[in-house]
């Protein structure tokens, strides 16, 4: 996805990849924590979530992602960084499709392809 184009070092590419993985895992973990219909309501629901690993996994992912993102942005221009970070939207939708059977309608597929195209343009040409 990101060939050895002048400005992108392997450290930057690695941090970018790590950020996508952590963001997707975090979102999916929160979804798994919040989506359990047996969890009840109000305080009982929070207790149910706190007693299971999903919520904590999500929080851990987000804390590490926070640091990874700071490191990532310190190495490349901010305008390029936020554009490359848009790939998270795609990763989460594709993961939602496979793990939760969420539908990918035609409009969604077009949106995913456009975002991917944009990220590729920026990643390859800076």
């Amino acid at each position: 996805m990101l060939p050895a184009a002048g400005s992108i070092s392997s450290l930057v590419a690695g941090l970018w990849l790590l950020n996508v993985v952590l963001d997707t895992c975090g979102q999916l973990a929160f979804k798994a924590a919040a989506g359990n219909p047996l969890a009840g309501d109000g305080l009982a629901r929070w207790k149910h979530m706190a007693a299971r690993p999903w919520l904590w996994l999500g929080i851990a992912c987000y804390v590490i992602e926070f640091l990874v993102w700071i490191a990532f942005l310190s190495l490349i221009p901010l305008s390029e960084g936020v554009l490359l970070g848009s790939i998270n939207i795609v990763a989460i939708m594709v993961a939602g499709r496979f793990l939760f059977g969420e539908k990918l309608t035609r409009l969604r597929v077009i949106g995913i392809l456009l975002v991917t195209l944009g990220v590729t343009i920026v990643g390859v040409a800076g």
């Binding site: 848009s86 939708m93 409009l107 969604r108 077009i110 949106g111 995913i112 975002v115 195209l117 343009i121």
Partner: peptide, 9 residues
């Protein structure tokens, strides 16, 4: 491209 994609989504 990204903004167009976000609008589609």
């Amino acid at each position: 491209a990204i903004v167009a994609g976000i609008v589609c989504l």
